[in-house]
Computed example of a mutant assay.
Amino acid sequence: MSHLDQTLFNALIRRGIDDRGLHRRALERVRDPALQILLFENLETLDSLIGDLQAQVRADGGTPAERGTLAGSLRTLAADVSTRFAGHRDAAWVQCLARHECGLLHSFERRVQRTGRRTEAGLNRQLDRLYGMHRDMHCLAGTTHG
């Protein structure tokens, strides 16, 4: 893995950690048991995705990112504040998570296009996981109005 690939992987790891933090906050705040189960499953997917990417960076002799970004922390705080005042908190969290999950998915898609063939297979496996989350969240967001 080239230095550029490691940099790209670490950017994805940090973005995944940011989204995982947002999902954790949402899981603490939502009330619907079915939504809690979905968020827990999404957290497991994100944990696995982050762990796999970190392992790939380590396997190629690099140092993987272990923390998210300041911007991600601020997004989580802003989401917490904005959903707190929503009429339907669970629906507001779903809408927020769907937007952020879409950004994570697009980040992965862009990175797949920018990396070499060797790393593309690993990222494509991660993309499959994200597409599953994408379908779930956007299906739910489409049927949930705040």
Rank of each mutant, 00 (worst) to 15 (best):
H3S: 04
L4N: 11
D5W: 00
T7I: 15
F9Y: 15
N10P: 13
A11M: 15
A11D: 14
I13P: 00
R15Q: 15
D18M: 01
D19H: 11
R20D: 06
R24Q: 06
R24D: 06
E28N: 06
R29E: 08
R29Q: 10
R31D: 02
D32L: 02
D32K: 00
P33F: 02
P33M: 05
A34T: 11
A34S: 12
A34N: 08
Q36I: 08
I37W: 07
L38M: 11
N42K: 13
L49A: 06
I50L: 03
G51E: 08
G51H: 14
D52Q: 09
Q54C: 03
Q54A: 11
Q56A: 11
V57I: 12
R58H: 07
R58A: 06
A59Q: 12
A59C: 07
A59Y: 12
D60E: 14
G61V: 01
G62F: 00
T63I: 06
A65R: 00
R67I: 11
R67P: 01
R67G: 10
G68R: 00
G68H: 00
L70C: 04
L70Q: 11
G72F: 10
S73I: 09
T76L: 07
T76D: 13
L77S: 09
A78S: 10
A79S: 13
D80S: 07
S82P: 14
R84Q: 07
R84A: 07
R84G: 09
R84H: 14
F85Q: 09
A86P: 01
G87N: 08
R89F: 04
R89P: 04
R89L: 11
D90A: 11
A91Q: 13
A91P: 09
A92G: 13
V94A: 01
Q95K: 12
L97Y: 02
A98S: 02
A98Q: 12
A98R: 01
E101N: 09
C102N: 06
G103R: 10
L104T: 02
L104Y: 06
L104Q: 07
H106G: 08
H106I: 01
F108S: 05
E109N: 10
R110D: 06
V112A: 05
V112H: 03
Q113N: 05
T115R: 00
R117E: 01
R118S: 07
R118A: 04
R118L: 05
A121H: 15
A121R: 15
G122H: 12
R125C: 05
Q126D: 11
L127N: 01
D128S: 14
R129F: 13
R129D: 10
G132S: 12
H134A: 05
R135G: 02
M137W: 06
H138I: 05
L140S: 02
L140N: 00
A141I: 04
A141Y: 14
T143M: 11
T144I: 04
G146C: 14
G146N: 13
